[in-house]
Amino acid sequence: MMRAVIWDFDGTLGYRGGSDASGGAWTTSLWEVLQAEVPGCGVTKEQLRPYMRAGFPWHEPDSAHTHVKSADGWWQMVEPLFTRAYTAVGFDYKRAQRFASLFRATYLDLDRWCVYHDVIPVLNVLSSAGWTHIMLSNHVPELRDIVSHLGLAPYFAEIFNSAEIGYEKPNPRAFQIALDALPDVEEVWMVGDSMEADVTGALGVGIPAILVRREHPDARLYAETLLDVPVILSH
């Protein structure tokens, strides 16, 4: 009997350090570019944050982007969002474009990425119990590099990344691509920190789901930490 868990990555298994209540990974990376290029400019994360709330592929999950065939092409698609943010906080267009061109390297600084303390123990417990691990994440093209750097790659039979497959969760096609990699599976679950992308998306294609780390009133199954996931799966 093959059993599998489909895991989200960002906010579930790992995260980019330096983020806080004033700004997530994207906002923080925008701000870090400014700290390196124009220290003391006075721009805050709070000023930048509104411009990261729309425009990314995962903000329009009903629209496929299978036409984007390379990592460079993906970043070219989103770079205007960074330029917009920098111009909105007062920089001229030419400087904003230059700052935007530096965003990718800043965001992808592998030393900034971390794995939650409960991840490895839970992956080991479930692997020992016969569960297969699949990753399905809305992320940047370099997700595999991040996962490898964190030492997580050996745990996963497959890694599906929206930047590569062209579909964002909760689009049913994203989940179907993951399911197609599990033709003999008899039991499959989704685990993630987003009610909309992970839980609602999975339930929409008949996959039971566990919300983790970020509580939501509509979640039927919730685990504050991943340590509770094996308990839920055993029932």
Rank of each mutant, 00 (worst) to 15 (best):
W7C: 08
T106R: 08
E164H: 11
H149E: 07
A163R: 00
T66N: 05
N171G: 04
I134W: 00
G73C: 07
G206S: 07
W31C: 07
D8P: 01
W58K: 08
M135W: 02
T44C: 11
A71G: 05
R104C: 07
S127H: 04
D145H: 04
Q97T: 15
R213H: 14
A223T: 15
S162W: 02
V185S: 07
A85T: 11
D184R: 09
D193E: 13
I210Y: 00
V43I: 14
S194P: 09
F156M: 05
I210W: 01
G14N: 05
L136H: 01
A197G: 11
W7V: 07
E60V: 15
I232H: 11
A54S: 13
A202D: 04
Y93D: 14
M52Q: 14
R16N: 11
L233S: 15
S127Y: 01
E168Y: 00
L81G: 11
Q76G: 09
A96V: 09
L152M: 13
Y222L: 08
N171V: 05
V68K: 06
T27Q: 02
L179E: 08
A223G: 08
V125M: 05
E187C: 10
L227Q: 13
A105G: 11
T132I: 12
Q76V: 05
G204I: 07
W131G: 01
S29T: 10
L233C: 15
I120N: 00
E224C: 13
V231F: 10
P61E: 08
I232Q: 05
D109N: 15
G23R: 01
Q35W: 08
W58H: 14
H67P: 01
Q76A: 14
K94P: 14
V119K: 00
G14P: 00
E224K: 15
V199R: 02
D218H: 10
P121V: 01
G130M: 03
R16F: 06
L182I: 08
H139K: 01
A4L: 02
T106E: 10
E32H: 14
E32D: 13
V125L: 08
S19Y: 02
R214D: 13
G42M: 06
F82A: 09
M135K: 02
R104M: 06
L182A: 07
P80G: 07
L136G: 03
L233E: 06
W75R: 00
G17Q: 09
V147G: 06
H59C: 14
L233I: 13
D10Y: 11
G14C: 12
I165Q: 03
S234W: 10
V119Y: 03
D20I: 06
P217M: 12
G130S: 09
S148E: 11
T83W: 03
L211K: 01
G23S: 04
S101Q: 14
T27G: 04
I134V: 09
D218R: 14
R213E: 13
G55M: 03
V147E: 02
L211M: 07
P57N: 15
R95F: 14
A25K: 01
L13M: 11
V229K: 01
D228N: 13
A202H: 03
V122T: 04
G90M: 06
A202S: 10
P172C: 04
L102M: 13
V89G: 13
P217N: 15
E79Y: 03
G130R: 01
E196H: 10
